[in-house]
Amino acid sequence: MRMRPVLIFDGDCGFCTTSVGLVQRLVRPRCEAVAWQHAGLASLGVTAERARHEALWVTPTGRVYGGAQAVAKILLSGGGVWAVVGAVLTLPPVRWAAHGLYRLVADNRGRLPGGTAACAVPGARTHRA
C-alpha cells in the first residue's frame, strides 16, 4: 500500500508540467507527482482516458479525485493558508464554479503560456472567434 497520495498530470503538456512545478515549490503538497505517461495507471485504478482529461489525485487507499477537486486536495495537503483555500474549493457553490473554471483552463491549455499542440485535450470543444 502506498503511504502518500499521487498527483497525476500530463507530462507532455508544458502548461501542466510548469503548473505542477510551481505548485510543488509554492504549496509543497505532501504527495508524489508523476506524469500519467509514466504512472502505471492500472495499479492506481485510473484509465488513460481520464488521465488525459484532467489532473488526478489518488489517495493511498485508492480514492481518485479529478479536476478542481484534485486541486482542492493538493491545496489541502499543503497545509496552512493553502489548506483553507482547498477547503473552500470543496464547498458548494464554490466547488461548482471551480469545476467550470478548471474545465475552461483544461480545455484551452494548449493556448495558455507554455502550452503547445501536445497540450490539447482530446475531444475538448474548440471555440473560434
Results as ranks from 00 to 15, higher is better:
residue 67 G to V: 05
residue 67 G to K: 04
residue 128 R to S: 14
residue 107 D to L: 00
residue 100 G to M: 12
residue 15 F to C: 02
residue 96 W to S: 08
residue 46 V to F: 11
residue 112 L to C: 07
residue 14 G to T: 09
residue 109 R to F: 06
residue 100 G to V: 06
residue 93 P to E: 10
residue 47 T to N: 03
residue 102 Y to M: 06
residue 33 A to Q: 02
residue 81 V to R: 14
residue 72 A to Y: 02
residue 109 R to V: 07
residue 126 T to G: 02
residue 64 V to E: 06
residue 49 E to C: 01
residue 41 L to E: 08
residue 106 A to F: 02
residue 61 T to C: 04
residue 60 P to L: 10
residue 74 I to G: 02
residue 124 A to R: 06
residue 109 R to P: 02
residue 72 A to H: 03
residue 121 V to T: 14
residue 111 R to S: 07
residue 117 A to D: 13
residue 49 E to A: 14
residue 49 E to R: 14
residue 120 A to M: 10
residue 76 L to D: 06
residue 110 G to M: 05
residue 49 E to G: 09
residue 38 H to V: 00
residue 4 R to M: 11
residue 98 A to H: 01
residue 47 T to E: 11
residue 37 Q to N: 01
residue 106 A to D: 01
residue 119 C to K: 11
residue 5 P to K: 08
residue 107 D to Q: 07
residue 1 M to W: 07
residue 44 L to D: 01
residue 106 A to C: 02
residue 102 Y to H: 07
residue 16 C to R: 04
residue 86 G to F: 10
residue 93 P to S: 05
residue 98 A to I: 05
residue 36 W to M: 13
residue 46 V to P: 01
residue 4 R to Q: 12
residue 109 R to M: 09
residue 78 G to T: 12
residue 72 A to V: 05
residue 76 L to V: 11
residue 27 V to Q: 05
residue 107 D to S: 05
residue 24 Q to I: 01
residue 5 P to T: 04
residue 116 T to W: 09
residue 92 P to F: 08
residue 53 H to E: 13
residue 10 D to V: 13
residue 45 G to E: 12
residue 8 I to V: 15
residue 88 V to Q: 04
residue 38 H to N: 12
residue 34 V to H: 02
residue 2 R to I: 00
residue 19 S to K: 04
residue 31 C to P: 00
residue 19 S to W: 09
residue 118 A to H: 11
residue 61 T to L: 07
residue 102 Y to W: 06
residue 127 H to C: 02
residue 36 W to T: 00
residue 89 L to V: 08
residue 118 A to D: 15
residue 45 G to P: 10
residue 24 Q to Y: 02
residue 98 A to K: 10
residue 58 V to D: 03
residue 99 H to K: 13
residue 88 V to P: 00
residue 56 L to Q: 14
residue 24 Q to W: 05
residue 127 H to T: 10
residue 60 P to F: 10
residue 20 V to F: 00
residue 11 G to Q: 10
residue 29 P to K: 06
residue 126 T to E: 12
residue 83 A to E: 03
residue 91 L to N: 06
residue 20 V to Q: 02
residue 120 A to D: 08
residue 70 A to G: 09
residue 91 L to D: 08
residue 40 G to D: 06
residue 90 T to K: 13
residue 93 P to H: 09
residue 36 W to C: 02
residue 10 D to L: 12
residue 103 R to C: 04
residue 48 A to G: 10
residue 107 D to R: 02
residue 121 V to G: 00
residue 3 M to F: 02
residue 77 S to K: 13
residue 15 F to S: 01
residue 2 R to D: 05
residue 114 G to T: 11
residue 99 H to F: 10
residue 101 L to I: 15
residue 14 G to H: 10
residue 87 A to V: 07
residue 31 C to G: 00
residue 97 A to Y: 09
residue 59 T to W: 09
residue 14 G to P: 07
residue 106 A to E: 01
residue 96 W to F: 07
residue 62 G to P: 08
residue 26 L to A: 14
residue 80 G to Y: 13
residue 108 N to I: 00
residue 1 M to S: 13
